[in-house]
Nucleic acid binder design. Structure first.
Lengths: 226, 226
DNA sequence: GTCTATAACTAGATAGAC
DNA sequence: GTCTATCTAGTTATAGAC
């Protein structure tokens, strides 16, 4: 029954690490809530740190595999040296991530992932980064093809901005209630969020590269910005 | 010398909390690095938790005061019932935050703030939220005036997206190196980042409200999205 | 206000019976 | 594989001398 014990330990630890942080979660909390013995974590994973690693790998790898599948499909459908449709590209990048964050068990992990960006542990950081490296480069090249007129320095920053909104939306709940407290339309539909996000990000990515005039006249929504 | 001791404790604790997290930072680490006695934290602040509270208040209040000063100036310069220029409004919201994150001592605090969004402590969360409530409502109304054609439900989401990019850019360094590793143009100029961000966010905010066509033909950067 | 000393407790890890 | 018992080392907080 070793495999099942590993499973339940990872499930419980994922939720606890997300809620209380790595340092704030004790092996005693984990093993108690998982209904296993205190020594089980060290037996199955070797240490508390190795348990953390296993948790990251379990979620991130499938997410990035889906991103690459979608990108492959896009590139197969459009010519090889040709432009790619921007909105579809954005969606290929963000949809697997957002769906992970709304999945049954995955929503705890997203908080954990957001937390990991702020941790200083070099070990953890290196491991998380390694899990993203291949996907990042493939998508960077694809976006460069979708926005051929944009200087690469500008594209670089805007892709960061895209990752930023995405990361924020993935962490979800708590953070998103800060700015406009009571106006939330209770919509748990991930597809609706994806549509809104694709619109926002695509228009941000496709903005002209030149600096913006700060004192512009009022404009209507949908009107192109100069 | 009580005031100076409080000061140095807060400075050191801010950096340590940001780097190692609240639970990951011990009073021993703080007092050792601050060159004060172990008992000093409990004497001056009452507890570890109260020290944390004091650290938040010290940074957030001035930042939001500056946001409101800028908004007041904008509203004074433009008519009361009239539209506000979108880019200037975005800048009024993000510039004080980004400048705080690049200030001498402030850059540690930003990581700490980002971390707090992921913490589950209801006490801390309530306190942080209270510090933002007034600013949030004032800006929400201002953005509604700047984008009068945008349905309020759509505006709500896009303001969240804005906060998301901002929060991400404030946490800075670590997170931003994930997607495009070696292409970073080493630019520590906050004004340049602000300009780029204002462009990205303004175009995202001003996008048409209708859903996006996913399979669109390629476009040039700067061309309006349909 | 600042210090030392210590109380009261919890942490991760492991040895060894079953 | 799973258990109990325990080790070592860390934590917050406080009492009381100066």
């Amino acid at each position: 029954m070793g495999n099942k014990t590993k499973q339940v330990i990872m499930d419980v630890a994922e939720a606890l690490f997300a809620t209380h942080g790595y340092e704030g979660t004790s092996l005693r909390m984990i093993t108690q809530q998982a209904g296993v013995n205190l020594a089980a974590v060290n037996y199955h994973f070797g240490s508390k740190a190795a348990l953390m690693e296993a948790i990251y790998e379990r979620r991130i790898r499938p997410m990035n595999e889906e991103r690459l599948r979608r990108l492959d499909a896009l590139e197969a459908h459009h010519g090889d040296g040709q432009h790619l449709p921007l909105e579809a590209l954005v969606e290929a990048f963000i949809a697997p991530a957002l769906r992970l964050s709304r999945e049954g068990r995955g929503n705890h992990f997203i908080t954990l992932l957001g937390r990991s960006y702020l941790e200083s542990s070099p070990t953890l950081h290196a491991q998380v980064r390694r899990l993203f490296d291949g996907v990042a480069e493939r998508f960077r090249q694809a976006f460069a093809r979708a926005l051929p007129e944009l200087p690469s320095g500008e594209l670089y920053w805007r892709l960061h901005f895209m990752v930023g909104v995405l990361a924020y939306c993935m962490t979800g709940t708590e953070m998103m209630r800060l700015i406009a407290s009571s106006r939330m339309e209770a919509s748990d539909d991930p597809d609706e969020l994806i549509t809104r996000l694709v619109t926002f990000i695509s228009h941000g990515l496709a903005a002209p590269a030149s600096p913006v005039v700060v004192d512009a006249p009022p404009r209507r929504a949908g009107e192109a910005l100069r």
